[in-house]
Design a protein around this nucleic acid. Structure first.
Length: 281
DNA sequence: ATTTTCCCCTGCCGGC
DNA sequence: TGCCGGCAGGGGAAAA
C-alpha cells in the first residue's frame, strides 16, 4: 500500500542513482505492466533515453527523459521498485515484471504480486496540467495545501471526510493508512460529511494530514505488508500507527478500544470516543 | 457534477 | 487436511 511517504522514500533513494543515467535496456517480463501499450514498442521508446530527473506527483513516480517524454510509474497495491547495483538475478526477484538496466550496469526492477502496478509513457509535448487535472490534486506537503484550501476542496461535498481524503483529485497521495491516522489525530470521525467540518476542524485536519505524512516519510514508510524501499528495506511507520490495524487495542489517548468498520469501501479504524460520529453545537 | 459500484489481480488466512 | 469465501486497497471506468 504505497502512499505518498512510501513513494517519496523510493524516489529519494532512486533519484541520485538514476539521474543522468542512460537507459541501456528495458525488459518487460509481464506485458500487463505496460498495458495497453505494446511491450516491444514501449521498450524501444525508452531504450537509449537519458533520465534527466525523477519526480513524484501524488503516488506517481515520473522519470523525465531527454526526448521530452516522461516515463510514468505507479506501484498501486503491491508494486516494488528495487535498485540493484549490478545485474540482478531475475530468479531471485519474486513477482518480477520488468527490468530497466542503466548504462553504468545498475538495474531497477519492478516486481508486483498482484499485477495492479503500471508503467507507461507520457508523450513529449503533453500539457501536463491538463493531463493531471481531475486525477491528481494538491500536494499535501507543498505550500499550496493550506487549511483554507482544504476547506475549499471539501466545501459542499456530502461524502464522508475519509472518502474525500482518499480522492486523489482533491489531495494527492493520501491513502488508507494515513487517512485513518490523520483523522484520529484530528479527532474527526471518518464518516462525517466532508463539507460539514467547521474551521477549527479543518485546521486540525490540515495539520494532521501533513504531520501523518511527514512522520511516515521520516520513518521510511509503513511496511505493513509488501512495501519495501528501493534498497529492499522495511520502513518503521507501521510501529508508530495509532489506530490503523489496531482494532480492539486501547486508544492511546483515552483507552477506549479502537473499532474497525468499512468506510468508503476500505477497512477503517478509529476511536469511537475521540472521533465522535455526531457533534453537537 | 458528484457519488457509488464494480473491476482488475494474487496470495493469504480463518472457518468449516 | 483441504477447500473456499473473504479480504487486502491502489485507481479507473462505468453506472447511478
Amino acid at each position: 500500500m504505497p502512499e505518498l511517504p512510501e513513494v517519496e522514500t523510493v524516489r529519494r533513494q532512486l533519484a541520485p542513482r538514476v539521474t543522468g543515467r542512460r537507459i541501456a535496456e528495458v525488459r518487460v517480463v509481464d506485458p500487463l505492466l505496460v498495458s495497453p501499450l505494446d511491450p516491444d514498442e514501449f521498450a524501444a521508446a525508452v531504450t537509449g533515453r537519458v533520465i534527466l530527473a525523477l519526480e513524484r506527483r501524488g503516488k506517481y513516480l515520473l522519470a523525465r527523459l531527454d526526448d521530452g517524454a516522461t516515463l510514468g510509474l505507479h506501484l498501486r497495491m503491491t508494486g516494488r521498485v528495487h535498485l540493484h547495483p549490478g545485474a540482478p538475478d531475475p530468479a531471485a526477484v519474486r513477482f518480477l515484471r520488468a527490468v530497466v538496466t542503466l548504462d553504468d550496469g545498475a538495474a531497477v526492477t519492478f516486481a508486483d504480486q498482484r499485477r495492479f502496478g503500471r508503467m507507461w509513457l507520457i508523450p513529449a509535448g503533453t500539457d501536463e496540467e491538463r493531463y493531471w487535472r481531475g486525477r491528481v490534486g494538491v500536494e499535501p506537503l507543498g505550500p499550496a495545501f493550506t487549511a483554507r484550501r482544504l476547506g475549499e476542496l471539501l466545501d459542499g461535498r456530502r461524502v464522508g471526510v475519509k472518502a474525500a481524503l482518499l480522492n486523489q483529485a482533491l489531495v494527492a497521495g493520501v491513502g488508507n493508512i494515513y487517512a485513518d491516522e490523520a483523522l484520529f489525530a484530528a479527532g474527526i470521525h471518518p464518516e462525517r460529511p466532508a463539507g460539514g467540518l467547521d474551521p477549527g476542524e479543518l485546521r486540525r485536519l490540515h495539520r494532521a494530514v501533513r504531520e501523518a505524512l511527514r512522520r511516515g516519510l521520516s520513518s521510511g514508510g509503513a511496511s505493513i505488508d509488501s512495501y519495501r524501499d528501493a534498497m529492499g528495506n522495511r520502513g518503521t511507520m507501521q510501529d508508530a500507527l495509532r489506530v490503523h490495524l489496531h482494532e480492539g487495542d486501547p486508544c492511546t489517548r483515552c483507552g477506549t478500544p479502537i473499532v474497525k468498520g468499512r468506510v468508503a469501501q476500505r477497512g477503517t479504524y478509529w476511536c469511537p470516543r475521540c472521533q465522535p460520529r455526531a457533534v453537537w453545537r
